[in-house]
Design a protein around this nucleic acid. Sequence first.
DNA 1: GTACGCCCGATAGGATCCAATCACAACCGC
DNA 2: GCGGTTGTGATTGGATCCTATCGGGCGTAC
Lengths: 251, 251
Amino acid sequence: MLGTMTDEHPTTAATTSSSLDPDTAGNDDKGRHGNASQRIADGLRASILSGELPAGSRIRQEEIAARYGASRIPVRGALRILESDGLVRLVANSGAWVARFTRAECEEFYQIRERIEPLLLRMSLPCLTAENLDRMDELAEQMARADRVEHFLRLDREFHALSYDGARTVVLQEIVQRMWNMTHHYRSMFTQVFLEQGSQIVHDEHRMLVRALREGDAEQAELVLCGHIRRTRLQLARHPEMFDAWPSASG
Amino acid sequence: MLGTMTDEHPTTAATTSSSLDPDTAGNDDKGRHGNASQRIADGLRASILSGELPAGSRIRQEEIAARYGASRIPVRGALRILESDGLVRLVANSGAWVARFTRAECEEFYQIRERIEPLLLRMSLPCLTAENLDRMDELAEQMARADRVEHFLRLDREFHALSYDGARTVVLQEIVQRMWNMTHHYRSMFTQVFLEQGSQIVHDEHRMLVRALREGDAEQAELVLCGHIRRTRLQLARHPEMFDAWPSASG
DNA sequence: GTACGCCCGATAGGATCCAATCACAACCGC
DNA sequence: GCGGTTGTGATTGGATCCTATCGGGCGTAC
């Protein structure tokens, strides 16, 4: 026979790498089983999120290919992956740029997050374990004492990722992850501001969230999370200077 | 100079093709200016949505390349595009399959839609024109008289796409479009059922939606739309036979 | 002096060829 | 007879080469 090998759907996906945690985002060992595109995409994603590749800067295929010791073919694949991640903008026959978002787009992302993250939280709630919640308490505690931006961001991302850990969804988690990646730089700048101000409300919200989850109160958890994101969006809107002070795109 | 050509971000995107309408979905003329990947992706998308390529069937690169008179390189690009559209599932070193969704995943999609489409509608409302609304009335009228599934689906998609036409968003519209594509077959089967039953509630909802939009009542419009999607989800959950009677994947 | 058109370099996209990987199957040892 | 192993074919992934396209710079005409 010729065409009757494995024409049915694959048993499980298992190839989409990258968790909500930016460090392990795409560094799953299984992700690289012979897939250079994925490896390059993961590396580029890390470079973009770390700020090494600033928003608006151009990405040249040959340069990336040389850096990763590959040809331009897997680089193109990587760029497509990052485009679907929302981190790179491709223009046919022209080139690739690190995505840069306007203030309006950023507000759009936050409004999307306000709607879908509470849903994801609701879906996650029934399967959250006591270990999840204990760890979230720890993280909330550590965040309250954090003074460096990168440290806070790492804890914050792990905190929220944990809160979504019980969800059995696929697409929703991917969307949420994309939103987190796309808003990464804004959260970074915003964190800078509120760490300087020593605002406490973020930690109050985190504690309220864990409490609602512990009590199994999905409605309350949704409200707290929605408010958490909404407050951030409104705060962000009050700091338009963040959108002017973009890290400039060097060649 | 060497590196100082156009290293800034491109002025506008303008390359993401495909509207909410499945016919023009990706057939924008500008999409093909030397971009075979896009052209092939658009063709494949149409084949998948039309049912010509059934869910779960395998996609062979060489076969597609031959059909479109190209090499396998742009086919790979097309497959990546469709993967980010959620219509194709890629497994490294194994192959590509037309995405097939479980009942749980389908419910997930509808729940996502319940949350984000009302938001998109709210964002669209302020910029909707009288022409938009008049055309929506027409479409609602035609839908009430439609008796063929494809005809209804086409009108329905145009109706809702029009309701989102005022939105200045980018990402949100892409997400919504993806959800519509991924649920396309389910809507097809569901439409079959309710057309046979002669149910009127869908048309009532459509009229209520237009009325709320005319009155500029965003809150009411959101509620109606949420209920519209929610009711469909619950109806779908009551027809588990749809998930058994999948079109089989022929090689 | 300015505006238009042509030319050319650089970069992205595509074709062809080659290597790696996987699935199936037949074979051999126990 | 059965399980593990290895071989083979098909298919995907990657490298190299070639072509198309885009943008800037120069020259010329008005």
